[in-house]
């Protein structure tokens, strides 16, 4: 059982990932953009520990996923981060996304759409 912060602007994606996490016994906190995600992360940090895992989208309003990753790395270096992205423009291809997220310190990098198995494998890996 882990405390997980899920930052994702697409409501349907957020819902589906939340279901997968909760079905596996995790406690899920949500945010719909990078900025409120950071606020939520700080809020959660008032509890004895930080969030165990932060799952964040990349292309989001208000604060970009890369910036969100960097900030969380600053705030809590030990918190594991999973970056998820649906790709995008020519210049924002999966390869660049993987390289950048890895460079910034994301523990796992998943390209949408991914399967429930891959998702849960990544989450469990963060907890071991």
């Amino acid at each position: 059982m882990a405390r997980i912060l899920l930052i994702e602007d697409e409501e349907m994606v957020r819902y589906s990932l939340r279901c997968a996490l909760e079905d596996n016994g995790h406690e899920v906190f949500e945010a719909s953009d990078g900025e409120s995600g950071i606020t939520q992360f700080k809020e959660m940090s008032k509890a004895p520990t930080h969030a165990d895992i932060v799952i964040t989208d990349i292309l989001m309003p208000k604060k970009h996923g890369y910036d969100t990753i960097s900030e969380i790395r600053e705030l809590a270096p030990k918190t594991k981060i999973i970056a998820i992205s649906g790709g995008g423009s020519n210049d924002f291809n999966p390869k660049a996304f993987r390289e950048m997220s890895g460079f910034l310190g994301a523990y796992h990098i998943l390209s949408k759409p991914f399967s429930a198995e891959d998702f849960l494998t990544a989450v469990n890996d963060c907890l071991t």
């Binding site: 697409e10 994606v13 589906s16 279901c19 949408k112 759409p113």
Partner: peptide
């Protein structure tokens, strides 16, 4: 993004 909830 649309395929993500469908698949999961």
């Amino acid at each position: 993004n649309l395929l993500q909830p469908i698949l999961i």
